[in-house]
Amino acid sequence: MKKSLAVIVSGAMLLLAACGGGSNQASGEKKEKTVTIGITQIVEHPSLDAAREGFIEALKDAGYEEGKNLKIDYQNAQGDMNNNASIAQKFVSDKNDLILAIATASAQAAVQATKDIPVLFTAITDPVGAELVQSMEKPGGNATGTTDTHPDAIKNTIAAIKTFIPGVKKVGIIYNNGEPNSVVNVKNAKEALEAEGLEAVETTISASSEVKQAAESMVGRVDALYIPKDNTVVAALESVITVANDKDIPMFVGEGDSVKRGAFASYGLDYHDLGYTTGKMAVEILKGKKPADIPVGYPENLELVVNKKAAEEEGITLTEDMLKDAKIVGE
Results as ranks from 00 to 15, higher is better:
164 F>D: 06
237 L>R: 05
170 K>D: 08
181 N>K: 08
107 A>Y: 03
197 G>S: 12
100 L>I: 03
92 V>E: 07
178 G>T: 10
197 G>K: 10
99 I>W: 02
311 A>E: 05
266 S>Q: 00
204 T>E: 02
195 A>P: 01
55 F>T: 03
90 K>S: 14
220 G>H: 06
245 N>S: 15
286 L>D: 00
47 S>N: 05
308 K>Q: 11
221 R>A: 11
233 V>Y: 10
205 I>T: 13
179 E>T: 06
229 K>S: 09
195 A>G: 03
41 Q>K: 13
1 M>I: 12
22 G>E: 10
6 A>W: 14
163 T>S: 15
138 K>E: 06
149 T>F: 12
235 A>S: 15
311 A>T: 04
2 K>Q: 12
54 G>W: 04
156 N>A: 13
46 P>N: 05
233 V>R: 05
253 V>S: 00
318 L>T: 11
250 P>H: 06
83 N>R: 05
194 E>M: 08
232 T>M: 10
34 T>Y: 13
66 E>K: 06
146 T>R: 03
122 T>H: 07
296 V>L: 01
122 T>Q: 05
141 G>P: 05
316 I>R: 13
265 A>T: 09
210 E>H: 11
5 L>N: 10
150 H>I: 01
240 V>F: 08
83 N>E: 03
23 S>W: 14
132 L>G: 09
37 I>N: 04
225 L>F: 15
81 M>I: 13
121 F>H: 08
259 V>C: 12
323 L>I: 03
256 G>D: 13
60 K>L: 03
131 E>Y: 07
271 Y>T: 11
181 N>Y: 08
109 A>V: 10
173 I>P: 07
206 S>Y: 06
1 M>P: 11
240 V>I: 10
325 D>C: 00
